[in-house]
Computed example of a mutant assay.
Amino acid sequence: MSSIFTKIISGEIPSYKVAENDKFLAFLDIQPIVKGHVLVIPKKPIDYIFDIEDNLLGEFMSFAKSVAKQMDKVFDCKKIGMTVIGLEVPHAHIHLIPINGIADMDFGKAKLSLPSEEMESIAKMIKEA
């Protein structure tokens, strides 16, 4: 199953990577609902998160946790929120979002459009945290 995420994994489409290992990739959402909105994906193309085998799902959550901990060091927020919706792209993914309240996780609000320089700066800060 090919998706925009498989193209990001292969390097066909550029992304603002914040973390990567042999099984997972984390990068900035290009249509964030708040600054610092990160997507975490498995490199194995699995559509539904609950179809991921148990061991890999545990590693996926551990990887997402490590990215969230990096984000905690960068953003002035109460917590890093996590959500899984899974309808936008047919590839399992976790949204990590710096939040100060539940309204920060409202996917119905207008998406931000940040200049590439700012996206690069945010990605660099998370990577270096």
Rank of each mutant, 00 (worst) to 15 (best):
E117Q: 12
P45V: 07
S15T: 08
S66R: 14
L87A: 09
K78P: 00
P90N: 14
S121C: 04
A68Y: 00
P98R: 11
P14R: 14
H37E: 07
S113H: 15
I97A: 05
D54S: 15
K43Y: 03
F5P: 10
F107G: 01
P90V: 02
P14M: 04
S2H: 15
A26S: 14
D76R: 15
C77E: 00
F60K: 08
V40E: 03
F107D: 00
M71T: 08
G86W: 06
I85S: 10
D22W: 01
F50C: 01
F27K: 05
I94F: 12
D51C: 02
K43M: 02
G81L: 08
A110D: 13
S2D: 15
V84L: 12
F24S: 07
E117K: 11
A64I: 11
M105Q: 13
V84T: 13
K35W: 00
K127G: 08
N55S: 12
I49D: 00
P90K: 14
D104M: 12
F50L: 14
I85E: 13
L96E: 01
I9K: 08
E53S: 12
P32E: 02
S66W: 00
E128N: 12
A19Q: 13
F27S: 03
F50W: 10
V74C: 11
P98H: 07
Q31T: 08
K7L: 11
G108S: 13
I99P: 05
H95V: 07
Y16Q: 04
I8E: 06
T6Y: 13
P32V: 05
A26I: 07
H95L: 05
S62H: 05
V38G: 03
